[in-house]
Design a protein around this nucleic acid. Structure first.
Lengths: 113, 113
DNA sequence: CCGAGACGCAACCAAAAGGTTGCATTTCCC
DNA sequence: GGGAAATGCAACCTTTTGGTTGCGTCTCGG
């Protein structure tokens, strides 16, 4: 098995992703990019409820967490989802749950012995 | 299959969890509870780097996201992990990744036709 | 060529977050 | 009984966050 700190380290690495997805606007952006594919800032701003500049800032935060990346094309900037960090974060959460189950099992064994 | 908004709704429900885990101290608390089982505030404060009051506040935030819950026992308050919301969040992230793969596939098909 | 479309940059602002200190309470246990 | 342990409550402070407005720049297309 893994060392005690293995899942904790994985979670720590995923922390920027959690932080980025914790905001409602940003999570909506990710959902949109996930379902609608690569889109420009102007496109992502429509029906977002906030200014284009706000969207730009949010995209920068998401990019900082490696959740999205941009591709410049002419006068526009296309943003695309990066699924890998999301997968990693997903696995990290799963490991935390599993580790808890193990800890619970050990506790029960301790009580019943 | 699910409707277009299915994974988005799941993600939206998981947002409080992401928000809660986005903080370094809180993520460390979750990791500790996950690996070490139920613990009191005093225990969780040791080697945390911040005050007991700060820990108390963080636990309140985690409780708000249903990630932990407390059990009062005598003069102390035991905090325990709640794995279900973490599992749900994990699945939500997974679905976002999958949906992106589908969208990518449709895009490629569109280009190559 | 030149107007409109798509962005970038910077200053500024109000609210929320993270943290601390000080003091009151409740519960153990010698 | 009484001190120490474990917490709760509240006021206060600083930094970060999310958002806006204003203006300049680059690019496409008729």
């Amino acid at each position: 098995m893994s060392r005690p700190s293995a899942s904790a380290a994985a979670a720590a690495r995923a922390r920027p992703v959690f932080s980025a997805l914790g905001d409602e606007t940003r999570l909506a952006l990710v959902a949109r990019l996930s379902a609608g594919g690569p889109q420009s800032i102007a496109q992502l701003t429509t029906r977002a409820g906030v200014t284009r500049q706000a969207i730009t800032k949010h995209l920068a935060v998401l990019a900082g967490a490696k959740v999205v990346h941009d591709i410049r094309r002419g006068r526009e900037r296309i943003w695309e989802l990066d699924p890998q960090p999301l997968q990693d974060a997903s696995r990290a959460l799963d490991q935390i749950s599993r580790r808890w189950d193990e800890a619970l099992g050990r506790l029960r064994a301790l009580v019943e012995e």
